[in-house]
């Protein structure tokens, strides 16, 4: 038996690390969601389906721009030395995922804006912007480039939100490269659910609901592989896994993330796409909420975990 008493009592550090509050999980969720929307938009553009009356091309980039601004506000609120935020953009630190993220976010804005121009609403198609939008819509090469950039940047954004945590090796719960894949899949799934929820075209809704089933299934597999990785690693990693296997995060993880966020929506949506039940807005809401809870569980449990 070991008893350790420290005379240190630093705020945010003791007795358990709690450096990151609600802002970071919210940002990671929005980052993943935006990454997912960009990948879906990119895919549709690459397939040349932007001419269809789809919400993916006409609404999604605009929603992405709005959510990105909310996400960056959350990120800014988390900073403790806010007046120095510009320091992010006077350097590039190769080994820091946060530095990568700062620059990726800067590229995401124009990529989303240009993607929105492809299906710019008619009442905004005036002046130079209107001419640019018309030129883009008529150029298959430009559409291809915009699609490709959105697909690639969306993937980078989704993966980086996971790598941001997984690179901090001193937190065993985060210390898995699967986090990048997990957060990407979770973002893709939430984005597909979002389109499923707001799309007015039935074909589009069906397509995204089917895609979401695949994303959710892959996410479940990745989540189980992640836990397997922790459980087959050393004592510190096993103790980290115990946080969601009997520890303080067990209920919220299995009920909020796995049950309500993944398994139940997967079952309901599988029934809906095979036309055994009707589509409803409940499933996408559950998927999106589950995606948010996943970030909260990971950010909070990760801070609890430590090397023994």
């Amino acid at each position: 038996m070991t008893e350790l008493v420290l005379t240190r009592h630093n705020a945010m550090i003791d007795p358990l690390l709690h450096a990151w509050g609600w802002e970071i999980p919210v940002y990671l969720f929005l980052g993943g969601l935006i990454g997912g929307t960009m990948m879906i938009t990119g895919y549709i553009l690459l397939k040349g389906r932007h001419r269809e009356n789809s919400c993916v091309c006409s609404v999604l980039p605009l929603v992405g721009l709005a959510l990105l601004s909310v996400g960056m506000l959350a990120l800014f609120l988390d900073l403790e030395h806010k007046l120095y935020v510009w320091r992010l953009y006077t350097t590039f630190q190769f080994s820091s995922p946060m530095s990568w993220g700062a620059w990726i976010l800067l590229l995401v804005y124009p990529a989303l804006a240009v993607a929105w121009l492809v299906r710019l609403p008619a009442f905004l198609r005036v002046g130079q912007v209107g001419r640019l939008a018309d030129a883009l819509a008529e150029s298959p090469r430009a559409i291809w480039a915009i699609g490709y950039v959105n697909l690639a940047l969306g993937g980078m954004l989704g993966i980086y939100t996971g790598v941001l945590l997984s690179s901090l090796g001193s937190r065993p719960f985060w210390n898995s490269a699967l986090l990048g894949v997990l957060f990407l899949l979770s973002g893709l799934s939430a984005a597909a659910a979002f389109v499923h929820m707001i799309a007015w075209d039935r074909t589009e809704r069906e397509l995204l609901a089917r895609a979401d089933n695949i994303f959710i299934s892959l996410e479940l597999v990745t989540l189980m592989l992640f836990l397997t990785g922790l459980l087959t690693s050393g004592a510190s990693h096993q103790a980290a896994a115990a946080l969601v296997l009997g520890g303080p995060f067990t209920a919220v993880f299995w009920v909020g993330v796995v049950g309500l966020g993944l398994v139940i929506p997967l079952v309901l949506q599988s029934l809906a796409v095979t036309h055994r039940t009707l589509h409803s807005a409940i499933v996408p809401v559950m998927v999106i909420a589950g995606s948010l809870v996943l970030r909260f569980v990971f950010v909070y449990a990760g801070q609890y975990s430590h090397w023994l």
Binding site: L17, L79, H81, S96
Partner: peptide, 10 residues
Amino acid sequence: CIGCKACVAS
């Protein structure tokens, strides 16, 4: 320093 706390967590 921007106070992002990554180092604190790391």
